[in-house]
Design a protein around this nucleic acid. Structure first.
Lengths: 117, 117
DNA sequence: ACCTATTTGTCCGTATGTATG
DNA sequence: CCATACATACGGACAAATAGG
């Protein structure tokens, strides 16, 4: 379970963490039922504030990605994405990156496609 | 050239506009060389503040998506995405949406894939 | 039933930056 | 450029739920 935080990035820290946990849960890298590190520990490991980790945890819980509880910790609560879709996405993203397309551009397009269909 | 703003959405207004312009430029819906509406006009049309439109324009110019200049207006400056990639992305996103996967989840995965490869 | 350690929940406060009009 | 509002991040303190011995 590896997370990388860049405090200088434009994206807020709690969102960086949020994205990484969600992505790893969806890809199956973190299996359903796995307990995430205690917020306090994770905060120390990553060198960020406890509240920032809790912020990410709370949002993930609201989405249903994890379940949260005092004394129980944060447990992954979703099944991984169907492998077919994951592979296709990997493919497209890798190809786009190879063509020199920016991440933001892909995300813009994804949002546009999503809102149209 | 159609943009839709939702002032109640969580996403900031300038980002909504930014995403839509970028996406339409990349998909070829707005051709290279096309001049975008004057910021003042666009602001009035969309019912938002002039500064908000300028904010979006400035970021797009910094990215190189458009070029900005006094009296010249905002002109689209990039070539559209290769059609093959666009189609593939449409495909994956549509399929994922059909499976009930959330937009945020796809974006998380996209970022993770991007940062790994 | 009890105690203790662990872990999240909630509140206080402060500082800084950003979005918007 | 300026003012207001909001978001983010951090620090500390205590409350409350849970798990284990």
């Amino acid at each position: 379970m590896l997370f990388v935080i860049d405090p200088t990035a434009a994206e807020p820290i709690f969102e960086q963490l949020l994205h990484q946990i969600r992505a790893q849960a969806m890809s199956g890298k973190i299996a359903k039922g796995t307990r995430l590190p205690a917020a306090k520990d994770l905060a120390e490991t990553l060198g960020i504030n406890l509240h920032t980790v809790l912020h990410a945890y709370r949002e993930l819980a609201a989405e249903g990605v994890i379940s949260l509880g005092r004394g129980r910790g944060a447990v992954v609560n979703i099944d991984p994405l169907p492998e077919a879709i994951g592979k296709k996405l990997e493919n497209v993203v890798a190809q786009a990156k190879a063509e020199g397309i920016e991440l933001n551009a892909i995300i813009s397009l994804t949002k546009e496609i999503w809102s149209e269909k």
